[in-house]
Design a protein around this nucleic acid. Structure first.
Length: 402
DNA sequence: TCTGGGGTCCTAGGACCC
DNA sequence: TCTGGGGTCCTAGGACCC
């Protein structure tokens, strides 16, 4: 599926969240600033120059960079900026594959005669994103998706880099192994122990020894990438395969009743998003993180996919109860819920019978839940499981539950 | 008050079926 | 009594990415 010429674009917005903030608030321009809550989500290039990195705790970032300005994320603004950038992508070629809120692959192989060379298309794309949305985007152009992504990364910030087919390996081999997609800190360390530091080292090693170090899956994968063998085409119309939500719990201890309330909020949020996307799901996974940073999961697969909040709540509360002792002994610092095994909502019956309670009774139930657990973010939808789903049974008294 | 919050893919063992 | 081979699904966990 590789085209013979460099005609896959990887377009990636630079320091996306931070750039949107600097665009909207001129006082932040040219300053070391970052977007974050607890940890850094995105840092301006001025802050990066001082060592501030994504995923770094804000406290650590301030030690490195005492004057660092941090702002709370405004997801709505980022979503809107992203939407406008993707409109420009879609206007450029019908073959657009989104990867995340701020990057995508574009296949422009069919546009040569009509519009111009990949280089001209990439330049025009960068110009339009700057002029119409006010953001800087870097673009890599190559024969494969993998190499296009590497090229955009190398070109940043505000870059355009084209890797022609006859220069691929010369470009690739001097780079550190961490540039290979799928090589993170752990894998890089294992390779470094064997003296493998650059992509070229991987390429020379051969597949056999690499498989011996990393196992079949990643061994073959990484070996192929080191030779720029990446047959994956640009694919449009992908749908996500899971939907989840999680909540960091901070340092203080939480009662089991509090955790049940947080779980209810997670279930409410996830099932609402599921229904808004007209999807139903079958596998629930509860994710735990403890004070010592160890992680744990518990999952359950239903016999049929559903969109019912009540069912999700029922299952997830049972999964939570399974870990009750563990949670009370070791401090829980994160609780997450993911629903996977998704399918289109019209595949199953969507509206479950309403149990006939009056609106007033529902509100009373809701008040009781809020009262008991001191939360205000639970809506009636949580009790109804959608427009006409069954109500959620009132949470048992925390004392009774023991 | 301080370690987001959203995802994807892979592996391995056990259950179960043919 | 001994013992196949192949396949799917589920659960748990690990690594990685933005």
């Amino acid at each position: 599926m590789c085209s013979v010429s460099a005609s896959i674009l990887h377009a990636d917005l630079d320091a996306f969240y931070a750039s949107v903030e600097q665009r909207d608030r001129p006082a932040l321009r040219g300053r070391a600033m970052a977007v974050g809550r607890g940890v850094i989500l995105a840092a301006s290039y001025e802050a990066r120059a001082l060592g501030v990195r994504t995923a770094m705790p804000i406290r650590t970032a301030r030690e490195l960079c005492p004057g660092l300005i941090t702002v709370e994320p405004r997801m709505d603004s980022y979503t809107e900026a992203s939407r406008r950038v993707f409109e420009i992508f879609d206007d450029t070629t019908p073959l657009v594959e989104p990867i995340s809120i701020d990057e995508a692959f574009l296949d422009v192989s069919g546009l040569g005669r009509l519009v111009g060379s990949p280089e001209m298309i990439a330049s025009e794309l960068r110009r339009r994103v700057a002029a119409d949305v006010g953001l800087v985007i870097s673009v890599g152009v190559a024969r494969t998706k993998f190499l296009a992504k590497v090229a955009s990364g190398v070109s940043k910030p505000d870059g355009l880099l084209i890797v022609e087919p006859d220069g691929e390996l010369d470009f690739l081999h001097p780079l550190p192994v961490g540039r290979l997609w799928g090589v993170g800190p752990k894998t890089a360390e294992r390779l470094a122990e064997k003296g493998i530091v650059t992509v070229g080292d991987v390429a020379i090693l051969g597949e056999g020894p690499l498989v011996a170090i990393l196992g079949t899956g990643s061994g073959r994968h990484i070996h192929a990438l080191a030779h720029n063998r990446d047959p994956r085409p640009v694919v449009t119309g992908k749908r996500r395969s899971s939907i989840g939500s999680q909540r960091a719990l901070g340092r203080r201890a939480r009662s089991f009743a509090e955790l049940e309330t947080i779980l209810l909020e997670l279930v409410d949020r996830v099932s609402r998003r599921l229904r808004n996307g007209h999807r139903v799901g079958r596998t629930l996974t509860l994710r735990f993180r403890f004070g010592d940073f160890s992680r744990d999961t518990r999952s359950h697969t239903l016999s049929e996919a559903t969109g019912s909040t009540a069912t999700f709540l029922d299952v997830s509360r049972r999964l939570l109860a399974l870990r009750r002792d563990e949670i009370e002994q070791r401090k829980l610092t994160l609780l997450g819920l993911t629903i996977a095994n998704l399918s289109p909502a019209d595949a199953v019956q969507q509206s479950l019978p309403f149990d006939g309670r009056s609106a007033r009774q529902l509100d009373e139930t809701l008040d009781a839940v809020r009262d008991r657990y001191g939360t205000s973010s639970i809506g009636r939808a949580a009790l109804l499981g959608g427009d006409a789903g069954p109500r959620i049974p009132l949470l048992p008294d925390p004392v009774e539950a023991r």
